[in-house]
Design a protein around this nucleic acid. Structure first.
Lengths: 157, 157
DNA sequence: GTATTACCAACTAAAGTACTGGGTTTTATC
DNA sequence: GATAAAACCCAGTACTTTAGTTGGTAATAC
């Protein structure tokens, strides 16, 4: 599991789509300005996201990006895995020396942890974040409007 | 929150101390061989860990490193924060344009997520990982022995 | 047709990763 | 006291990743 600023860019951009994509596609130029990320870097990120079906691009004037699936069917793990290569480092050279069994021990413990983090992030969707953020702000702003349109208020956690 | 191979190195090294530090200090040379990490890079990591009091060094022949606290009082978040600078990127320039409120929205949603991940990792200790790994392997190996010495078997999750 | 947008690819500056190599201190042991 | 084992320290450096720049092509609404 890997988590860096790249993953954060991707998640916040996806949140941007979730919040602002209710009335039409969102352009990368908008996101670029909103988030302060360069347009071309966003293009790179969205190429990965599109490859995993997490976003859908619409060309031409008035075009932009939509979420590829409903916001409650896209987990944080989905987004992060799309851009932040899931470095699986169980490089278990089959050489069962005593030093190696020790290495295998700590590595398998790490794998357990890695799996726990993954499961945790799989359980959180974009919709969850929007809903929780709304609960904090009172739901009277853009997020609230977007959430209504997304039907988030009718769902259980 | 940041999570990279650097954090993984630190966690596995700390697990090494938890597993092997029951009968005396563990040398960096041992860890270097066990984990396949260069000695000098380990020194850098342990300089950070020592700075946060997570490990305690013993100089001279027969020396090495101990955990700075009991394994059930060191969380994964502690270890990762020590080496993987907690990049807090709430660079909120106080410029409340409409674009900025939008940016603030997604950023605060990210901060919520970041906090959730942090809380999650704060709730997992080195002792937890050793105990769970043991449950998987049956507890009849080195981990089991170490866990007995650490008194892990008498604790609740 | 033209402007707008997604899409594509090569190059590059800056930062982070992991290692190399040279030290110095401390301290147990002979 | 000499020796050696270990922590501790620091400057440099090859490599990778990050993030951005530039310069395009393809689709499409108007």
């Amino acid at each position: 599991m890997r988590l860096s600023t790249k993953g954060r860019y991707a998640v916040t951009a996806m949140l941007d789509l979730a919040l602002n994509g209710t009335e039409g596609p969102v352009t990368l130029a908008d996101i670029s300005e909103n988030q302060g990320i360069s347009l071309s870097y966003l293009e790179q990120l969205f190429a990965s996201l599109r490859g995993k079906g997490l976003v859908r691009g619409v060309r031409g004037p008035g075009g932009g990006y939509y979420l590829g699936r409903p916001a409650d069917e896209i987990s944080i793990a989905d987004v992060i895995c799309a851009v932040d290569e899931w470095v699986e480092f169980t490089r278990c050279n089959p050489r069962p020396s005593s030093a190696d069994t020790q290495r295998g021990m700590t590595h398998s413990l790490w794998d357990d942890l890695s799996q726990q983090i993954y499961d945790f992030l799989t359980g959180i969707t974009l919709a969850d974040l929007v809903r929780r953020g709304m609960a904090r702000t009172g739901g009277s702003d853009d997020a609230g409007k977007a959430a209504e349109l997304l039907g988030l208020n009718n769902q259980a956690a």
